[in-house]
Design a protein around this nucleic acid. Structure first.
Lengths: 249, 249
DNA sequence: CGTATACTTGAATTGAGTCAATAAGTGTGG
DNA sequence: CCACACTTATTGACTCAATTCAAGTATACG
């Protein structure tokens, strides 16, 4: 028996709302809390299906017809683009209860792949659209989610275009810390579910450079690394912020 | 008298729809064509105001309260972020009839500055919101516009994270050519309203590197430069596409 | 316990940046 | 129309941050 049992059965993933595999995730993602009647919520539940994905399994493929929209229920997903010769740029990491599957011109705009075993709630795009027409509240919330996504994309462009390797790595660690903080976790301990190669592809660097930058931060006394090197403790948050240079944010 | 007179008076900008300074721009941007009654259109016109901006004049400032939304009526606008030490990343160039002024958390997520003398239609955000509640059609259209913006942002992340200077420059020229093509212009001649420094800040390079890349493309016989170096003729579109590596698009 | 995978570290290379000079284009005023 | 200044763009020489190539080490896993 593995030390960290993973949820691979729909039964386990649906503990929060029996009969609705995605209750918690969908409600949280669309900020329904109290805004939908049980009838309305049931409407959403009718069309949702829970799907499981193993590590490195593709969830959506760029340029495929965008038949579904998704909410990440458990795990971590990387969103990325690829050039013909194999160069990869990860444009974002998703955590529960992130929404994805946005399309441009009826087709998915990116690849999405499970970074660790993950489960997602899948909504047929057509059904979701119909429900959105009924509940404009939902559409407005989606607009706000996507607006934030644009702001994040612009931050990432600034990082990729103008920051040094050390600054990129510091920004990444700080960003992950902010996410897990809002997710309820204590604060200065950050778990990184993705490997160095995924981080490198997100930061526009190589694995070696990411590794060197992390070692550099460790040597400066800004962070500490766990034995498995996937958990980072921030020991000097001020220094990390300085390096990250998050001016406007 | 200058050879290319610019429209600096509201009167000249409102030729298309007398009494409504932004008729053409707002209708086109929201894809109303035929979908709004004259009463509804009038509602939009009531709240719009035309504003003029000189070269390098700021239109919106990052982190200011996002009181207005805009549609570019004439000219060209650069959207950018800046680090504390002055490093700049241009996240996009806007052309008529692009929409901008999207906010995250009630505040503008970026700076926007006129690249050439420009005019914009300004809508008070509150009024626009109210109108959107009345006409969900508009909101859905905005959602689609923003979705495309995310796809473009991801393309740009791939460019900034993984493409060489030559590939970035080729991608930029091809992107500008696509824009002006859809804008009605013939095809292989592209006018670049922005200077090399703005291009460099968009591509995550320096002006020198952009200049070298353009010279390289010229030497390869892919493009030709006009005397004023702001108009590019694409002489080998296939070679340009190969260099740009626009896999999925 | 041994093998595979992931990560780190070192040395050499290189693409883009920096610094510096030149060239071309624009605008002004005589 | 020309001379001058000013801005913008190009080109060259050198530097450096990050990549590439190459070991080496640690951790996970069967």
């Amino acid at each position: 028996m593995p030390t960290k049992p993973r949820s691979n059965s729909p039964a386990e993933a649906s503990t929060e709302a029996p009969g609705n595999p995605c209750g918690a995730a969908s409600a949280e993602a669309f900020s329904f809390g109290g805004h939908l009647t049980s009838t309305e919520l049931e409407r959403v539940n009718q069309i949702v299906a829970l799907r499981h994905f193993d590590v490195r399994q593709l969830i959506v493929i760029q340029s495929d017809i965008a038949s579904h929209r998704f909410i990440l229920n458990e795990g971590c997903v990387k969103v990325y683009r690829m050039l013909a010769d194999g160069r990869v740029q990860v444009t974002g990491f998703l955590f529960p209860p992130d929404f994805f599957g946005v399309a441009a011109g009826g087709r998915y705009a990116y690849n999405a792949e499970a970074v660790i075993p993950s489960s997602v709630c899948a909504f047929p795009a057509k059904d979701l659209e119909r429900i959105m027409e009924e509940f404009p509240e939902m559409e407005r919330r989606l607009l706000s989610v996507i607006s934030n996504e644009i702001a994040a994309a612009q931050d990432q462009m600034l990082l990729l275009g103008r920051k040094t390797a050390l600054e990129r790595t510091a920004s990444f660690i700080q960003g992950m810390a902010n996410r897990s903080r809002s997710g309820g976790d204590g604060g200065s301990r950050v778990f990184l579910p993705m490997n160095r190669s995924d981080i490198a592809d997100y930061l526009g660097l190589t694995t070696e450079t990411v590794s060197r930058a992390i070692s550099n931060l460790k040597a400066r006394g800004v962070i500490e690394l766990s034995k498995d090197r996937r958990t980072i403790s921030i020991t000097d948050g001020a220094a990390l912020s300085d390096l990250a240079e998050d001016s406007g944010q």
